[in-house]
Write a protein that binds this DNA or RNA. Structure first.
Lengths: 186, 186
DNA sequence: GTCTATACCTGGATAGAC
DNA sequence: GTCTATCCAGGTATAGAC
């Protein structure tokens, strides 16, 4: 199992394809052709497709953690931080529009496949949940912090799903505004 | 192309499998073995897998339409009707828990596959949307009826996705209550 | 570490006997 | 209408040469 540049590229490409095409729909041929290595060579780096998935989930967990940390560094108040989360609906709109929310769609796909890594994928949701809970706690809402975190999570999930289905940027913009307004009333 | 009992059974089984396993993950072998016919025979009834999908979407559209009509017959007020919609989260919890929302998950899968029938599947969302809009209009909220309909749709979508990911019935119950309370304040 | 070749299986789809 | 046999493409995975 390599740990070098090629392996890194494989995970990067797989991450992208799993998001855009779905895990199951992505083949070894898809990945290897984009990395410019042979199919057989892929197996030198990863024994199975499930191994690639685990590596992808790990990368997503790390990337999410870094994003959350950088939001905390940039935002002055907890509300600023939470708004950074809300606004990814717009920041990533060009992707969400076509492929939905990367977290939600992976979790639902793995749920249907009854995949062994389903629990790992769910951890990405948990990461967001606990971070949001922390922000609401800092806001002085310790008692209802988890419920508020879930509220923000589910709101954005719903908007991502419907924004994707109806391909409606205007709607997403309105909802993002509503969410920010709602947050300001807290 | 047959129109008899077998064809009906095929669509019924495919409907169930597409929901539980996903469209792509469901094979002709899966369907034919459950209908107790040979794989080859399946092709007597449907030329392609996409044809089966179209038939399934059609059935779902019809079923949804009937459900909406029966809600109107049962509910005395528009709020009763909307609550019938909200409560499917609990009525169908044993399925949502494992496989998510049948409408949302099909739409996101077809979006990733860039499937020709994506637009057809989205019509199920539209059916709910327009029916909800009608209910809010009757409630005397004509001007904001569509926005309210989208609000209800996205709220339930978000709750279904997170309820599925965290396998949390208690959370779903709380959200259903919150949605009903919110509706009562309108 | 990288590549080719290849085994093996499953899936979608067709042809033709009954 | 139903079946078997079969084709072909594509997918996962392995062996072994370089």
């Amino acid at each position: 199992m390599g740990h070098g540049l090629t392996r890194h590229q494989i995970v990067e490409v797989a991450d992208d394809l799993f998001y855009r095409q779905g895990f199951e729909h992505t083949s070894f041929a898809d990945i290897s052709s984009l990395v410019n290595i042979s199919r057989g060579n892929l197996y030198h780096h990863f024994k199975t497709k499930d191994d690639i998935l685990d590596a992808v989930i790990n990368v997503r967990l790390n990337r999410t953690q870094h994003m959350l940390t950088s939001w905390e560094e940039q935002g002055k108040t907890p509300k600023d931080c939470i708004k950074s989360y809300i606004k990814i609906l717009l920041t990533n709109w060009s992707m969400i529009r076509n492929y939905g929310c990367p977290v939600g769609t992976l979790c639902t796909e793995l749920a249907k496949l009854n995949h062994a890594s389903k629990a790992e994928a769910n951890k990405i949701f948990t990461l967001f949940r606990e971070w949001l809970r922390g922000q609401f706690t800092e806001l002085g809402r310790a008692q209802e912090a988890d419920a508020l975190a879930m509220r923000v999570l589910s709101w954005s999930q719903g908007v991502a799903t419907l924004g994707n289905a109806f391909d409606d940027l205007k709607y997403v913009k309105q909802e993002v505004e509503k969410m920010c307004d709602w947050l300001d009333t807290l």
